[in-house]
Simulated scan of single mutants.
Amino acid sequence: MGGQLHLGRLFGVPIVAGFSWLLWIFVALYLMAGFFPDEIAPTDGRKFVLAAIVVVIYVLALVGHEFGHALMARVFGIETERVELWALGGLAHLSRGARNPKEEFFVAAAGPAVTLLVTIGAGMVVGAVDGFNLDALWQIGTLQYSGSTAVSAVAGIILFFEGLALIFNLLPALPLDGGRIARSIVWKVTGEPARGTAFAAQAGKVLAVLLVGVALWLVADTGSTFNGLMALFLAYFIWQNAQAAAIPTERRRSVASLVPASAVMDREPVWVATTDTAADAEAHAFATRDLAWAAVLDPEGRLRGILPAERVREELAAGRPATPAIDLVPSGARPATREDVLLHKLLKDKDLERLGALPVVDSSGVVVGVVSREAARQALVVEGGLRT
């Protein structure tokens, strides 16, 4: 972490910032001072004091946002190596990426949840001091709100910037938190994290192109060169990060086209012999394991069917422990997959989705392992940090 300022620790997590962040602080102070009218701040000194209060609150809100990610990640056993602050936001460097859509959704959403709370708090202050109506909301949204007191003026500026940050950050485009949330939803629906990443990364590129258009409009129609340059810089940042997210997705798809089920299967599956009884099956397969089913194998190790734990326990409850386990196997197809089936095809298997796992057989039909849906999915997940 050379070339960075060490700002301290919170909940055991280091907080750092690049030296360019200091430059941003001074620029922000200068710009914020211009938002306070003479009625509220009659002297330059008072304007800069109020500007400093705005910047401090903004930074604290930003830190809170990043620690929303960090503390939610900790709930799922993901540690945060450091929180990094920079001019356009922050970055929680996580020890690993999400392993399932639930982790991805809640860790991504925790940051905006903190920003929402800050936004609501600022709005409540404005409402308590000056009253809150549509006219006041319009003035805040157009940065024309001056407030009747220094407190409401500061709260109005915080409400504008935090509200804007919240809306922008929830856009369904990587690297924004909204992109992570969108990724988790697509991942949940399709069962493929790569599709979620591809969708959110493509949305990020679209957003970057739109921001270039905004930048050109700001310069050409409003004459706001500074704001235009900021929009252009933001577009570049989003495009670069969306592109970086898309590259691992393409690599992952390439890997998925090469990795067979045998690479991620459990080579010592739980099984039941065709000669076992219901009591044997319970003792050997289900009593000490949380399994929904076990494979039934003949003496040569070939699959004879899938034995549901529920059927075994129904038989035991009925007082028939000596019932042959093979008689409890549902008739019909014997769900299984070949050891050379590739992961991207395996994840489309309806039996895998229904059962959660499948026996893996070799070319002669002998069971050589069991592959779970979770293991196949995790093999395709890219790990990384969470950027706001």
Rank of each mutant, 00 (worst) to 15 (best):
E66P: 05
P308V: 09
V206K: 00
D130V: 10
M1H: 13
V270I: 15
A285H: 04
G191I: 05
L94V: 09
T323C: 02
V341P: 14
S20H: 14
R9T: 15
A61R: 01
V16E: 04
A379E: 05
G8T: 06
E314A: 12
G223C: 10
M124C: 11
V118Y: 09
F233A: 15
A87M: 13
A109L: 12
V360Q: 06
G141L: 11
A295D: 05
V13R: 01
K348L: 13
R313Q: 14
E81V: 15
W24V: 13
L343D: 05
F67E: 03
R302C: 04
A294W: 01
A235W: 02
G111V: 02
L291M: 11
G204K: 08
I40R: 09
D276G: 06
V63Q: 07
E84G: 00
L171T: 02
I185S: 02
L62N: 04
D327S: 15
V312F: 09
L355Y: 11
F48L: 15
E339W: 06
L174A: 04
P101T: 11
V370D: 07
T288R: 12
E39W: 03
I120S: 00
A278T: 08
V296S: 07
L229F: 14
W138M: 13
D298T: 03
E104A: 11
S184Q: 06
S184L: 07
A379K: 01
F19R: 12
T249M: 14
A155K: 00
W239R: 12
E103F: 02
V361N: 03
F36D: 03
A375E: 06
V360T: 08
D349E: 12
G213H: 10
T288W: 11
A357V: 08
E315V: 12
V83T: 03
I57Q: 03
R334V: 10
I57S: 05
G228M: 01
T222N: 11
T288G: 00
P37R: 07
L31G: 01
F233N: 02
L216R: 09
V63P: 02
A287S: 14
A173I: 07
P359N: 11
L174T: 04
I326P: 04
P248D: 10
W271I: 08
